[in-house]
Amino acid sequence: MAFATSQPSQLEAAVSACELEGNADARLGDEGTTLTLDMEGEGEGEDDTGTLSFAEILCVLEDLEVPDRVTALMGETRSLDRRQTGDWDDVSAFWSYHPDNGLDVILTVE
């Protein structure tokens, strides 16, 4: 008798590859089809609770093979730009940036 084993989703695999399991600021949801990344900001206010470094977010994006155009857009986003979006393969990214809150990214896969 063969047993079915569930494979980790693309997002779950990226979290694991970047050693972010259990980090509250790398939150998986929707049965592994959504990942929210909360970066640490430069501000010292109570509004920012994120702890991820840019390098940790970049690790996830690289594992997901994000195109250069999307990472370039993320790097150029200003707080005045509001939420931005990008898509590649079966991944959609939504992000915003503010100096006090850092880069916050929501990734979804279909």
Rank of each mutant, 00 (worst) to 15 (best):
A2F: 13
A2Q: 06
A2L: 13
F3P: 01
A4V: 12
Q7H: 04
P8L: 08
P8H: 03
Q10I: 09
L11C: 04
L11M: 07
E12G: 15
E12I: 14
A14G: 07
A14M: 13
A14V: 14
V15A: 14
S16P: 02
A17L: 11
C18V: 06
C18M: 06
E19N: 15
L20D: 04
L20I: 05
E21R: 14
E21A: 10
E21N: 14
N23K: 13
N23C: 02
N23S: 09
A24R: 12
A24Y: 05
A24H: 04
D25N: 15
D25S: 10
A26P: 15
A26T: 10
A26Y: 12
A26D: 14
R27V: 10
L28K: 10
L28T: 10
G29S: 15
G29Y: 11
D30I: 05
E31T: 05
E31M: 12
G32M: 05
G32A: 04
T33I: 08
T33R: 15
T34Q: 15
T34L: 13
L35S: 10
L35Y: 11
L35H: 11
L35M: 09
L37I: 06
L37W: 05
L37H: 06
D38W: 10
D38C: 12
M39D: 07
M39K: 13
M39W: 11
E40G: 00
E40D: 08
G41W: 11
G41A: 12
E42L: 14
G43T: 03
E44V: 00
E44K: 13
G45L: 05
G45P: 02
E46M: 14
T49W: 12
T51Q: 13
T51Y: 09
A55W: 02
E56V: 02
I57T: 05
L58F: 11
V60M: 04
E62F: 03
E62K: 09
E62T: 12
D63R: 06
D63G: 10
D63P: 01
L64V: 05
E65V: 05
V66G: 03
P67A: 13
P67M: 03
P67N: 07
P67I: 02
P67E: 07
D68A: 13
D68M: 05
D68H: 08
A72V: 11
A72Q: 15
M74D: 00
M74S: 00
G75C: 03
S79M: 04
S79I: 02
S79N: 10
L80P: 04
R82L: 12
R83V: 14
T85E: 09
G86F: 01
G86H: 01
D87R: 12
D87H: 10
W88Q: 03
D89T: 01
D89V: 01
D90G: 03
D90L: 03
D90K: 08
V91L: 05
S92F: 02
S92W: 01
S92A: 08
A93Y: 00
A93E: 01
W95G: 00
W95Q: 02
W95D: 02
S96M: 10
Y97F: 14
P99R: 01
P99K: 04
P99S: 09
D100N: 10
D100H: 04
N101C: 06
G102E: 04
G102Y: 09
L103Q: 04
L103D: 03
L103A: 06
D104S: 02
D104T: 06
I106W: 10
I106T: 15
I106G: 11
L107N: 03
L107F: 04
L107E: 03
T108Q: 15
V109L: 03
V109W: 03
E110Y: 12
E110I: 08
